[in-house]
Design a binder for these strands. Structure first.
Length: 274
DNA sequence: AGCCAGGACAAGT
DNA sequence: ACTTGTCATGGC
């Protein structure tokens, strides 16, 4: 943790491999907002996070060393050496360019139930509306933290609901999938706490027992909440990347970390409107 | 105004 | 094993 300091009950992280826009608004998380001063706010578990850039540091406000080490070190994937990853992926010219455009992307390691629901909401949907649905989902069924913020609902709460109860969040045909996910997870029929210990393929099959979780959603959950960095979600943007930039398949340097490469390419494709 | 969005499912070849 | 229509909703 050479690049991480703990002072004044804040955490200070060297911003070399950490950009807030590139990390919090690159399509992996949907609950972070930025205000006119560049302060990012989001809810993780029961905590309201506030982050901003100050000089060459990313500051996480109101967090002590224990809290960071116990949970957020893992959440912000500080066990990954992004310098080394970027060096490896830069063997490919296209990836090198994508990385130069968004060198501060970090993968997040998010809560599993939240990630499953979020990417069920994402299907055949656009990011601004996904954020709205999730916001209403939390306000209606999540625990209130303060006047502005609600925790993400837990599976137990949602498992007790009927499809009609979800109508205020306006999720459309996805509502029935959310109920199915909550019921199967709460009953233990789908074991999400063990996914990290399973092979990528077995974890994928386990997730796809849920109605509304197909190949794309499963890959996102594996990548964004199960530390499966060989998972490779293919959405419409990545499909275009594969067709236009990699007609002969992904380069060798992505092997084992296809998902991380995917995240650089996803942000790149959207920025240049490929 | 109409096309499209970090897709999945069911029914049809 | 592949293709196609359908599913709600609203952002752009």
């Amino acid at each position: 943790m050479a690049d991480i300091k703990f002072e004044n009950n804040n955490v200070y992280i060297n911003a070399k491999d950490f950009d807030l826009r590139q990390t919090l608004d690159c399509g992996q998380a949907f609950r972070f907002k930025v205000d006119e001063n560049g302060v990012w706010t989001g809810v993780v578990k029961q905590k309201v996070l506030k982050l901003y850039k100050q000089d060459n540091f990313i500051v996480i406000e109101n967090m002590n060393e224990d809290e960071f080490k116990n949970y957020f070190y893992d959440y912000f994937t500080f066990f990954i050496d992004y310098q080394k990853i970027k060096e490896m992926l830069s063997a490919d010219d296209i990836l090198k360019q994508a990385i130069s455009m968004s060198p501060g992307i970090r993968l997040l390691n998010q809560e599993k139930f939240e990630t499953i629901c979020s990417f069920i909401f994402s299907q055949n949907n656009n990011i601004p509306r996904i954020k709205g649905i999730i916001e209403r989902f939390c306000e209606n069924f999540g625990e209130k933290i303060d006047e502005q913020n609600y925790a993400f609902p837990n599976a137990e709460t949602i498992a007790k609901l009927d499809v009609d109860d979800l109508s205020p969040i306006r999720a459309g045909f996805r509502a029935k999938y959310i109920i199915d996910a909550a019921k199967k997870i709460h009953s233990g029929e789908v074991d999400i706490e063990n996914l990290e210990n399973m092979s990528t393929e077995n974890a994928r099959q386990e997730l796809m027992k849920i109605k509304g979780v197909g190949p794309k959603v499963a890959e996102c959950v594996l990548l964004f909440s199960c530390k499966k960095y060989d998972a490779f979600p293919i959405d419409v943007w990545i499909k275009k990347v594969l067709e236009k930039l990699y007609p002969n398949g992904l380069p060798e340097c992505t092997k084992g970390i296809e998902g991380i490469a995917q995240q650089y390419l996803f942000d790149y494709a959207r920025q240049i409107k490929l």
